[in-house]
Computed example of a mutant assay.
Amino acid sequence: MDNSAKKNELDHAWKPVILSPRNQEDTDVVKKLKDTGKVMFFDTFELQLTELIKARNPKRNLSLEELSEKKADFFSASGKSSMESGNWVYYPWRNTLVRILEENEFVQLRTVRNRYKITQEEQEKLQNQVIGVIGLSVGQSVALCLAMERCFGELRIADFDTLDLSNMNRIRTGLFNLGIKKSWIVAREIAEIDPYLKVTLFNEGVTESNLETFFTWEGKKLDVLIEECDSLPIKLLSRIQAKAMRIPVMMDTSDRGMMDIERFDREPERPIFHGLLEAFGEEKSLLAKLPENGKEVMMALLQFENLSDRVKYSFSELGKSITSWPQLASSVILGGAACCHYARMLLLGQELASGRFYVDLDHIINLNEG
C-alpha cells in the first residue's frame, strides 16, 4: 500500500466526507453509496431548515403557510433548489450518509442556544482559536465539551493509546470501540456532532520528537494547551515548551475538582507548576532527574497532602491491588466541563489568573451541612 492510499485509509477511520449536491462528482459518489443498498441515509434537511427559519423569526409563531413562504424565499435567495441545498456527510465508520445544512446555516442553528451566554461576537472569535489536548481520558470530556459549545477553529488531540474495557468507567463510548485508538473515538464523536469542525490527530501521542510540531502544526501556534496525560516527562516537557512559546496551560486532576491554570502568555517567567518543583533544581534539568526522583516529583506537583483521602490510600496500593490510580466518571466529566469553561474565558480575554483551586463537591456539601 503506497503512502497516499494508507493516508486515505487512516482518514476514513475517523474523518467524515462532506459531499455537495451542487458538485456532479460528489453527487455521483452519493448515488453510488445509495445504490449499494448497504448505506444508511438520513435526510432531515427540511426539518433543519424549518428550525432555522423559526430561529430567525423569534418574535412570531409562524403558520404552516408562512413557513412554506419563507422556505421558498430561502431557496430563491440562495439561487438553489431544495435538492441542491445543504450537504451530504458520509461517515465511513458507520457506513451512513446524513444530509445537513450548509456550514454557515448549520453553525448558526447549532449555536443558537448558546446565546447570550456566548455572544455572537464571542462565538465568531472562538472560531479562530486553536486548542491542544494531550491525553484523552479526561481529555475526551474536555474535547467533547469544547466541540459542543464550538469553542475552537481547530482542535489538536493527542493520545497513543487504544480503548480498554477498564477505561469505560470514565470514557463515554460503546463496547464496539474496544481496541480502537482513543484519538479516533474522540474525532469520530466530534464529527458526528459537527462535521465542519477541524480536528487534527496525533495518533502516536506527544513525544519529545514531535512536541514542537504539535504546538505549531501547519504554522498555527496553539492558543491554549490542556494537558491531561499520565506521562510525567510529557507533563514537564509540554509546560517547558508552552512557557517558551508563551502559551497558557490548563490541567484537571479528577480529584477534588482541582483545576490548575498557568498563564505563561501573561507571565513568561512564571515557574512551571507554580514553583512546586523548585526543590528539584532548574526546570531544564528536571527530566534527567526523573529516573531517581520520579515518585517524589509526582507527589510534589500533585501536592499529595491536598489529595482526597481515598486517592492518597490508592497510591499505597499501586503495584499491589491496582495498576493505576482511580478516576471516576463524575470527576472526569466535571473536570472536562471546568476545562472547557475556563478555556473559553481565557480565549475570550476574560479575567483569569494563574493558580490552583478546587471545586470539591464533598467539601461544598459539608460546608452547607455545617
Rank of each mutant, 00 (worst) to 15 (best):
V112P: 00
V133I: 10
L144N: 06
V107H: 08
C145Q: 11
S137H: 13
L146I: 00
Q108E: 14
Y116C: 08
G132Y: 07
R113H: 12
I131P: 01
Y90W: 08
G153F: 10
F106P: 06
F106S: 01
V142T: 14
R99L: 04
E84S: 11
V107F: 04
F106C: 04
R94K: 13
E84T: 07
F106D: 11
Q123D: 09
R110Q: 15
E124H: 09
S81C: 05
L109E: 12
Q108F: 10
N95G: 07
V142M: 06
E84M: 09
N114H: 07
E122C: 02
V130S: 13
E84V: 05
A143Q: 01
L136Y: 05
F152L: 09
S137V: 12
N114W: 04
Y90C: 06
N95W: 12
T119R: 10
P92D: 00
S82L: 01
F75S: 14
S76Y: 12
V133R: 00
S82M: 00
Q123C: 10
I118S: 11
V112F: 12
V89W: 02
Y90L: 04
Y116L: 14
R99H: 11
E102I: 01
T96A: 13
E124Y: 02
I118H: 09
W93F: 04
W93M: 02
G139L: 04
L101N: 01
G139H: 12
T111L: 02
T96Y: 11
L146Q: 07
R110P: 00
F152A: 11
Q127E: 11
E103P: 05
S141V: 04
G79F: 08
P92W: 12
N128I: 04
W88V: 05
L146W: 01
D73W: 10
M83H: 11
W88M: 11
P92A: 04
Q129R: 15
K80G: 06
Q123H: 15
N87E: 12
T111I: 00
N104H: 09
N87G: 00
G153Y: 11
Y116R: 12
W88D: 09
Y91P: 07
G79V: 06
L109I: 02
Q108A: 13
G86S: 08
